[in-house]
Simulated scan of single mutants.
Amino acid sequence: MVEKDWLLKVTNLTKIYGEPGANTLLQTGPEFNSNICPETGSIVACADISFDLYPGEVLGIVGESGSGKSTVVKMLYLDIESSNGAALLKPYQNGLVNILDESNQKKRWIRNYLMGMVYQNPRDGLNFKFSSGGNIAEKLIMGGNYHVASIRTRAKDLLTKTEVPVQRMDDKPASFSGGMQQRVQISKAIANNPPLLFLDEVTTGLDVSVQARVLDLIRELQHDLGIAMIVVSHDLSVIRMLTDRTLVMKNGRIVERGLTDQILQDPQHPYTQLLVSSLL
């Protein structure tokens, strides 16, 4: 992969809750086994996160609860504001503008046209007052499609692709199983053919057999559509199944990065070694 081919370039992404002190970043992190500043009590959710993502690539971010992995994705999806850092998205202004600094109106455009998100809890990604087809329609309308017939056709196609019975298109997600809710959420997330999809702990809380089917579906969609993905999980088996490269996070910092196979077969950082040993 050559430098010019990147889709997303993230540099020094940082999120601090509370008022940071002069030494907050120096007194937190894996070497201190804490992300809480001893001077000010501010919380460093993540700090100095940098990476490139390439078209069609699947990048994993793995770590325990509180490691900062979900915060990274929420900042990149523009759900929450960053404290520092830059994110350049090649399809937006040819990758010359930091999307984190854009106006709320422009951020909505970026989210609607260039990104999709599948949350751990379907209630965060779906409107339970709408039908499954209505949720997809909402995303399509926000992406500029106002033609009712084409919206309904697209909704049917997406539900079929994600193995949701089309005859249930007018049913509300509340009447669906957890696995089916996630499949509707995936349909909504990819409705406008975004080049980038975020997946945040999408199998947590699902039965093992349902987890496997959802992961199979995600892998099939990525193969068929060529969407670049960032997959957040505390579960290395999910990372192993879906991703090409992996970032390992602890206490808000990246402690190891590399090809997923390489990290699983020969982890270098003690924390990664612990994660891998727990998988075996």
Rank of each mutant, 00 (worst) to 15 (best):
V2K: 15
V2N: 14
K4E: 11
D5K: 15
W6G: 04
W6P: 04
L7A: 05
K9L: 07
K9A: 08
V10G: 01
T11E: 15
T11Q: 12
T11I: 11
K15Q: 13
I16K: 15
Y17H: 15
T24P: 11
L25E: 07
L25I: 10
P30M: 09
N33S: 11
N35A: 06
P38W: 04
E39V: 00
D48E: 11
F51V: 13
F51T: 10
P55Q: 00
G60T: 07
G63P: 08
S67W: 02
L76R: 10
Y77T: 01
L78W: 04
L78I: 08
S82M: 12
S82C: 12
S83L: 07
N84G: 00
A86F: 06
L88V: 03
L89T: 00
P91I: 03
N94R: 08
G95W: 13
L96S: 15
N98I: 01
D101S: 15
K107W: 13
W109H: 15
W109K: 09
M117Y: 06
V118Q: 05
Y119N: 00
Y119P: 00
Q120D: 03
N121Q: 03
N121K: 08
D124E: 13
G125V: 02
L126G: 07
F128P: 08
K129S: 13
F130Q: 03
G133A: 05
K139Y: 10
L140K: 12
A149S: 14
S150M: 09
A155L: 11
K156T: 09
D157F: 07
D157S: 14
L158P: 03
L159S: 09
T162E: 02
T162R: 08
T162L: 06
P165R: 15
P165W: 03
D171T: 07
S175E: 08
Q182I: 00
Q182T: 01
V184Q: 15
V184D: 11
Q185V: 03
Q185F: 05
S187W: 08
L199Y: 04
L199E: 02
E201I: 02
T203Y: 00
G205M: 02
L206Q: 01
V208P: 07
V208I: 01
R213F: 01
R213Q: 12
V214K: 02
L215I: 02
L215N: 06
R219L: 02
R219T: 02
L221V: 06
Q222H: 04
S233T: 09
H234G: 11
D235Q: 11
D235R: 12
D244F: 07
L247H: 09
V248H: 12
M249C: 09
K250N: 13
K250E: 14
R253T: 05
V255M: 05
G258Y: 04
T260W: 13
D266P: 10
H269V: 07
P270E: 01
Y271P: 13
Y271R: 11
Y271E: 03
T272E: 10
T272A: 12
L275M: 08
V276S: 04
S278I: 00
